[in-house]
Design a protein around this nucleic acid. Structure first.
Lengths: 141, 141
DNA sequence: GTAACTGCAAACGCTTTGCACTCCC
DNA sequence: GGGAGTGCAAAGCGTTTGCAGTTAC
């Protein structure tokens, strides 16, 4: 399973928590789910400006914070000051191209196993994790 | 080996690359090496303001960029907009307290082994990596 | 109907830049 | 002595906030 969320589930989560379902919120969610490279707020804004010419960056940030609060996306802060949004909350590796900045998720069966070995050695209960690998992607080679 | 750098080595690296060795640069390096919790630029500034009352944030940022360029520290960007600086360039896990924000390095013999298994499965040559675990530290429990 | 949401613009905080003065080599 | 480095202040940029108008329920 590449994406562990669908729009119906998101709508349910909104309603269950007392948040309204608006066209803008749905558009932002769909956009993040439709892209596999973890867009920034600005990229979401650009990507939606055709369909929603009056949407504002403020709304996008507010929605992203809401999604984070509901546990539907993970924020990935980077050095260049940008924050990227990843809708995949399961354990995975972020493959980050150090040239173009695109990020793809890598999920292999054994990553989870190996990770569990490390965690059990640590003897603590992690609340979350983040694993990045920086490399040069095919397009940038 | 917890810290793989000492001041002498840093001075050599500066000179070798044609950069001058100044009191401010040394103070910043010593400060980062002396702390195990990966301070932010602001924390370095506060920590040095007694010894160097006229030091500026600009100088600290410039020095940190220089250290990064020379491969002496790693920048860790976080969601809250802050960047933290880690002088340990070897493979390790950043243990990040999600409450107080302190970061400690965790190095275990088997982490490197397990990591190598993952890398060889991927079939690519990583330029670097970052592994975070978010948890609640002893002080915050 | 009303409380929550949107869009806009102003404010904010961290980081970068420009420039005159200073100091290492 | 000269060029690199520092300190200061202003500018930059992504993000947050406040508020009047709008919309979901």
């Amino acid at each position: 399973m590449v994406i562990n969320l669908d729009i119906q589930e998101i709508i349910k989560t909104f309603r269950k928590n007392g948040y309204k379902v608006t066209a803008q919120r749905l558009a932002i969610c769909k956009f993040i789910l439709s892209r596999k490279d973890h867009p920034s707020a600005e990229q979401i804004y650009q990507g939606l400006s055709n369909e929603y010419p009056t949407i504002s960056l403020g709304t996008i940030y507010k929605t992203l914070h809401l999604l984070k609060e509901l546990g539907l996306v993970q924020e990935l802060g980077f050095n260049e000051g940008s924050i990227r949004y990843d809708p995949d909350m399961e354990l995975h590796i972020n493959m980050v191209c150090s040239k173009c900045g695109k990020i793809y998720d890598y999920k292999a069966a054994n990553v989870k196993e190996l990770w569990n070995v490390i965690i059990s050695d640590l003897g603590i209960k992690p609340k979350g994790q983040r694993i990045d690998i920086y490399y040069e992607c095919e397009d940038c080679k």
